[in-house]
Structure formats: structure tokens, C-alpha cells
Amino acid sequence: MSYKWLAALSCLFLLVLYACTNKESIHIDGSTTVLPIIAEVAEEFRSQYPDIRLIVNAGGSGVAVHQVGAGRVHIGMISRDLTEFEKASYPQADFVTHIIGRDAVIPAVSKYVYDAGVRQLSIDQLRAIYTGEITNWAEVGGPDRHILVIDKERSRGTRHVFMEVITGHPEAEAPGADLVLGANNELQTAIMQSNSAIGVLSWAWLNENVRGLAVITDDGEIIEPTKENIRNGQFPIIRNIELITNGQPSGIASDFIDFVLSEQGQKKVEDFGYARVDN
């Protein structure tokens, strides 16, 4: 009896070993903003190269930089540019970035707030909300409700880009914040569950219950968060989405990046509401 178990366990172990060694594998980690595209592209890539294992995770842009810098993953997905501090943290790493698309960071509010009349906010108003100077929706033309300000974890690319535009500093503090959440889906859920929330999301994560706001630029122009405005770069809070590698990619990693930049890959980028990069 016990020998049977032992034999079964050994077989299982061997099977696991076999599975690990047989295929070449590529590890990808990083931004949840880039994840939907890469997950889909990876699906197509797998069907074309069935012998290759692609393992895609998403822990945020900051995580991607650390993981690539430390050599734990092959390709990082980031939804912002590398900071000087990050480059300095990994002096031995040679980060190479590959821009694969363009995205907007859009202030998103609960449906209730949107329906009550808040359709746009200026850069100044956004800053005041995140620094805690404005705490009630009535102050920006909405219902008389406390604003539930949702901040993101500090390493998140979305936050870097947003803070850079509204405060001029990518890692600025947000003393007005009530919650700190991480991934896009976590924010999306929290905004959906609330009647008075504001957060920042990528275009791809907006929906019926999580509505994107137009942004009023310093010139007084109201810019709607539409696909066209993101593509032509009109929307004021915009960023590149990039893949990073440690050194020039080679082998499968290089094939994969080329695949993302190919017509097929770029079509996926567009499908998800991001703007393609034209070569």
C-alpha cells in the first residue's frame, strides 16, 4: 500500500520535473495596465510557438523594474518611464525599454457622482482633491457627499504619471486619500461599490459603473477621455506603455517583443483602447 503511494508520488514528481525542463520558459511581470494586452498577445504567441512557456504575472510597474533589475523575470511590463532612482538602484542592470503603445490615465468616478453632474475636473481641482483641500463633491458641482479619494500604491505606474501631471512630482504624497489600493481591478471594484469615489484608471478599465471624467487643461480646454484624444495625444495625462528587458533581448524574449510590435500584436494594443505605436 505504502509502496504504491510512494511510486505514485515519485511519478508525480518526475512529471513536474519533466514539465519544468521540457519547454523553454519566459517570465513576464509588471503593470496591471499592460497585463490585458500582453495576456492576449501571449495567448496568440503560444498558439504559434507551442513549445514555449510564457508565464505572465502582474504586480505593478515598480515590481517589474525590481524583478527585471534583479534578474528574476525576463520581460517587465511598465506603464510609465523608468525613474532616475530606479536606474540608480540597479547600477549593474542595463535596462532597455521597448515602447509598445500609448495610454491615458483617466480620473474615474462612481456612476452616482457622474450622473449627479460631475463630468469634468480641472488639473487644479484634481490636485486639491488629492491633497485634501476639496473634500466634498458639492465643491466641484456634484452632490453634497464626502469625496472618497482612492490613492494607488506608490510604485504603481498609473500613480506616477497622474501625480507627475497634477503635482509635478511622480512620488508626491496624497494626504487627501482615504484608501490605498493596488491593481486596476481593485480600484475598479472599489469605485463601483461606492457612491462617492474617485480614483485613476486606464481607459481599458472604465465601464458603465466606473465613468471616466473629462479633464480641463490649464488653458481651459475640456478634453474628453475618448480613444481619439488618447491616440492623437490631446488628453493631458498620457503615458507610454513599455516592455523592459535587462540588456538587449535575445532568443524567445526578442521574438516575443517583435511579436507585440508586429501588425498582429499592435492590433491587440488597439483592441484594448490603447494607441498603437507606428513604426
Binding site: 505593478g60 500604491e153 506608490r154 490605498v180 493596488g182
Partner: peptide, 21 residues
């Protein structure tokens, strides 16, 4: 009101801090 525990802080932030910093 919202808050933070040691474990939730670690869970959210440990991956984004550079090893050795």
C-alpha cells in the same frame, strides 16, 4: 475607518522595495 496592519503593509509593499534598501 480604513487602516493598515503590519501584514497588509508587507503584502502590498515588500515587492516594490529594493532588496537591501
Amino acid at each position: 475607518v480604513p487602516g493598515q496592519t503590519i501584514t497588509s503593509k508587507l503584502g502590498r509593499e515588500i515587492t516594490e522595495s529594493a532588496f537591501g534598501s
